[in-house]
Amino acid sequence: MSKIELKNVRIFTNHGCLTEEEKIGSDYLVNLAVDSNLLAAAQSDNLVDTVDYVTLNTIIKEEMAVRSKLLETVGHRIITRILEGFSEITFVTVTISKLNPPIGGDVEAVSVTMTSA
């Protein structure tokens, strides 16, 4: 089994439970890892034989654009879309980090990590 990772995909969006978060927005980092058998792609050197990370990035951006109160909800949507779109993917891990969260302290980020079953 092999892994494809997208690291620190930076997105500005408006998730959160607070009214201020909806109005002001915040920066987020998304890290994604998917497991798949990449041997056919390694041998063929052909994009059709692998998981296209451009498409993975598009899924991240589209789902992060849909406002949610909880990062758990966004993570679940990302995982669901990836598993529905790529039958060759066997496992997904996504971590969504809200940078400088409004939680009353000097906190660099809060993160939620979710995995497929």
Rank of each mutant, 00 (worst) to 15 (best):
M1D: 07
M1Q: 07
K3C: 02
E5V: 12
E5A: 15
L6G: 00
L6N: 01
N8P: 02
N8L: 13
N8M: 10
R10H: 11
R10D: 04
I11D: 01
F12L: 06
F12P: 00
T13H: 12
N14C: 10
H15K: 04
H15N: 10
G16N: 09
G16Q: 06
G16K: 06
L18K: 08
T19Y: 14
T19G: 00
E21L: 06
E21R: 02
E22M: 04
K23V: 12
I24A: 10
I24C: 08
I24K: 10
G25D: 04
G25Y: 09
S26Q: 11
Y28P: 07
L29M: 10
L29R: 08
L29D: 03
L29F: 10
V30H: 01
V30S: 00
N31Q: 05
N31D: 14
N31Y: 11
A33S: 14
A33E: 13
A33D: 04
V34W: 09
V34P: 00
D35S: 12
D35C: 07
D35K: 08
D35G: 07
L38E: 04
A40I: 09
A41K: 04
A42V: 09
Q43G: 07
Q43T: 11
D45R: 11
D45S: 11
D45V: 08
D49S: 09
D49Q: 14
D49V: 08
T50G: 13
T50R: 08
V51A: 11
V51R: 11
V51S: 09
V51E: 11
D52C: 15
V54R: 14
V54K: 11
L56N: 04
N57P: 05
N57D: 14
T58P: 00
T58Q: 15
I59D: 06
I60G: 01
K61D: 07
E62W: 04
E63W: 00
M64T: 02
M64D: 06
S68Q: 14
S68P: 01
E72G: 13
V74K: 02
V74L: 09
V74R: 01
H76M: 10
H76P: 00
H76V: 06
I78V: 15
I78D: 00
I79A: 11
T80A: 13
R81A: 03
I82K: 04
L83D: 03
L83V: 12
L83Y: 03
E84K: 15
G85T: 09
F86E: 07
F86D: 06
S87H: 12
S87M: 05
I89D: 05
I89W: 04
T90Q: 15
T90Y: 02
F91T: 10
V92T: 09
T93M: 13
T93W: 05
T93K: 15
V94W: 03
T95H: 04
T95W: 08
I96T: 09
S97N: 10
S97P: 08
K98G: 02
K98L: 08
K98V: 05
N100F: 05
N100G: 08
N100P: 01
P102G: 10
G104H: 05
G105N: 12
G105K: 10
D106Q: 15
A109L: 01
A109M: 03
A109S: 14
V110D: 05
S111K: 07
S111Q: 02
S111F: 03
V112W: 03
V112P: 05
T113E: 13
T113S: 11
M114E: 10
M114S: 14
T115H: 14
T115E: 14
S116A: 13
A117H: 08
